[in-house]
Design a protein around this nucleic acid. Structure first.
Length: 648
RNA sequence: GCCGAUGUAGCUCAGUGGUAGAGCACUUCCUUGGUAAGGAAGGGGUCAUGGGUUCAACUCCCAUCAUUGGCUCCA
């Protein structure tokens, strides 16, 4: 007999060799039916695997990531079995679980290409295989046996993976006619999978290296109930409705033109107005924090970027220099604002008393992005950074960091971003030669970031080896409607540029010292930030940002005059107001303006005209009753003031 | 850049080897209506672009451009 300890610390005895499923069954049939994987002594196991010694166990159902993991992992194997059925000779790479489903990278036989027309037959085959309830069997074999098996299958991809495994036992999982090298865990049989959707096809380089062969990656998702698949598809549809590209078009915020060029966003009047309000907002905050606005040109001599080091690192993969016709000069579209700002620093000698010097610019930069990488406003070839460079003494680093974090947090709070994480990127201590700067400086900078983040109670992840070559950084990452992660704000320490530009300040010891630079952009880029803001709000911007705050809807043409009177009253309060005087019924006007996400609709008819009031309707919230215009205007003003209170 | 998909009216999309359709939007008219779509008529498309096959191409083939889902890259 062995002792099994449960999460609540209760202990029960079982025969040796009992499996997770049996244990669950001894508790209740319902539990046994629902569990998908089990953690045995901190290792994730199959629920069908025998337990032979005293152990702690924890069961995982569909609602746990560990449960989904086994479910989707087995699904990936069944997908592979279906592919092998239709395309014998296929070589299998890896088939891992991802956040929403799984994929399998396969090397299809010569001459075979999959298209989305093949999805249906794959889905049908997967359901057929799952209905067979084939047991999924774990098997331990030696490395030599594994090599011989996959040599027989002529699967060089698996052989490559095996060759990198340590000697000793290797686990295989078999179901039906398919055998795969796999660590597991898996479901007991294929019957758990009730619905499947093959989502998309993509090319993916073997082992993520573009020098390797490109494999076909097939993405799919499966569920234990048909209803869950339907819910998932509804979620996808809903997420698509929040897509900033769609809303940007609907609300006439921005456009792209093939003629102007791919990846070059064009801001339409309403989008430009929105962006300008965001910029004014940040300018006001930055003024409070002692930033000095500067303006620099959109191009710079190639030499500037040779000095900064950017040319050596990115010059080849970038927009190529512009040559002047007669004087043989070369200019680069500026990919960064910092070299220009370094030159501003050098404009005159600086004293320790001048630091920190905080130079801010909404600087538009141009970077050559690969054509396949362009995506709406989030990945473009021209974008405007809300850039600033803080030149400070090393001992000021932490304090400056704290202030920048304050700005970022204030912006996120004002715009209601609650779901974000901060990523601290440090250097890889085993690869020091990749980075520039002394150990002492790195330690100082990394400590400053870690301490500052801790002091501000940021929810952080630390990534070792993700630092830029010139310094550690702190990034703020938010998720879009589809769950994709986007980096917004960034704060980076830089020891490299002050070195390259030979920046100096006179210390209180009458000796010249080198300042440290902090690059920081709380929005990141205006383009990306607006994109994420659109998806975050589904286009329902806060009152202070939106282009049309109020639309007045006269019940009929008879009340257009009164509507104009209300409009001019509201204009006196600086409230952005329009009148919808189309010859339409009130229901139609309400619908159209709700769809345009107007925050407040004012309905005026006979009743309102006689009592000198307006009937207020709030976006998404319906009829709010009647009130005097002045009362309403003050309500709006206080709503805006409340949102922006900390900078006013 | 690579793999896959897409490109038809301002928008969302249907369609066929024999010279194009819907809904919304737009224009005009009727209607003057009280909280999410009133009615009628009308205008609008070199079917992304350039080649090729064919008696005939929006449709089939090739190339280019753009968009898009991934991969790689990202100062």
């Amino acid at each position: 007999m062995i002792k099994i300890t449960f999460p609540d610390n209760k202990v029960r005895e079982y025969e040796s060799g009992v499996c997770g499923f049996d244990i669950a069954k001894s508790i209740s049939n319902g539990l046994a039916q629902e569990i998908l994987s089990v953690t045995v002594n901190n290792e994730l196991w199959d629920i069908s695997r025998s337990i032979n010694s005293d152990s702690t166990v924890k069961f995982h159902k569909w609602d746990a990531p560990e449960g989904k993991h086994a479910f989707w992992h087995s699904s990936a194997h069944i997908l592979a079995e279906a592919i092998e059925y239709f395309y014998p000779g296929t070589k299998f790479g890896i088939g891992p679980v991802i956040d929403n489903g799984f994929y399998y990278d396969v090397d299809l036989p010569e001459g075979i290409t999959l298209t989305d027309g093949d999805f249906q037959k794959l889905e049908q085959k997967i359901i057929e295989l799952s209905q067979q309830k084939n047991p999924i069997i774990r098997e331990d074999i030696s490395k030599a046996e594994a090599i011989s098996l996959f040599t027989k299958k002529n699967d060089n991809l698996k052989l490559e993976l095996i060759s990198e495994l340590e000697d000793g036992t290797i686990t295989l999982y078999k179901q039906g006619k398919f055998t795969d090298l796999c660590r597991g865990p898996h479901l007991p049989n294929t019957g758990y999978i009730k619905s499947v959707k093959i989502l998309t096809l993509a090319g993916a380089y073997w082992r993520g290296n573009e020098k390797n062969k490109q494999l076909t990656r097939i993405y799919g998702i499966t569920f234990p109930k048909q209803k869950l698949l339907e819910e998932y598809l509804v979620f996808i549809e809903e997420a698509k409705k929040r897509d900033h590209r769609r809303i940007g078009k609907d609300l006439e915020l921005f456009m792209f033109s093939a003629k102007v060029g791919a990846g070059l966003p064009i801001w339409l009047p309403k989008g430009a107005a929105l962006r300008e309000r965001l910029e004014q907002f940040l300018k006001k905050v930055q003024k409070k924090y002692g930033y000095l606005p500067v303006i620099t040109p959109h191009i710079g001599q190639k030499e500037l970027y040779v000095t900064s080091g950017h040319y050596a690192k990115y010059g080849q993969d970038s927009f190529q220099p512009i040559h002047t016709p007669d004087e043989n000069e070369e200019f680069l579209l500026k990919p960064m604002n910092c070299p220009h700002h370094c030159e501003i620093y050098k404009f005159k000698p600086r004293s320790y008393r001048d630091l920190p010097l905080r130079l801010a610019e909404f600087g538009t930069v141009y970077r050559y992005e690969q054509s396949g990488e362009l995506h709406g406003l989030t990945r473009v070839r021209s974008f405007t950074q809300d850039d600033a460079h803080i030149f400070c003494r090393p001992d000021q680093l932490k304090e400056e960091f704290l202030k920048v974090i304050d700005i970022v947090l204030y912006i996120f709070k004002t715009l209601d971003f609650k779901d974000f994480i901060s990523q601290i990127s440090l250097r890889d201590p085993n690869n020091k030669e990749k980075y520039i700067g002394s150990d002492e400086n790195w330690k100082k900078a990394e400590d400053a970031i870690v301490e500052a983040a801790a002091e501000k109670n940021l929810k952080t992840v630390v990534e070792i080896g993700e630092a830029a070559f010139y310094g550690p950084k702190l990034d703020f990452i938010v998720k879009d409607a589809l769950g994709r992660k986007w980096q917004l704000g960034t704060i980076q320490v830089d020891y490299n540029l002050p070195e390259r530009f030979e920046l100096e300040y006179m210390g209180n010891d009458n000796v010249k010292h080198r300042p440290v630079m902090i690059h920081r952009a709380p929005f990141g880029s205006m383009e990306r930030f607006v994109a994420v803001l659109i998806e975050h709000t589904a286009g329902k911007f806060p009152l202070w940002l939106t282009s049309e705050q109020v639309v007045i809807l006269p019940i009929s043409e008879k009340f257009n005059e009164y509507a104009k009177k209300v409009e001019s009253l509201l204009n006196n309060y600086d409230i952005r107001t329009l009148i919808d005087d189309r010859n339409e019924k009130i229901g139609k006007k309400i619908r159209d303006n709700e769809l345009k996400r107007i925050p407040y609709l004012l309905i005026v008819g006979e009743k309102e005209e006689q009592t000198e009031t307006i009937a207020v309707r709030k976006q998404g919230d319906g009829d709010k009753g009647s009130m005097k215009v002045a009362e309403f205007a003050e309500l709006l003003q206080s709503e805006i003031k409340e949102t922006l209170k900390e900078i006013n």
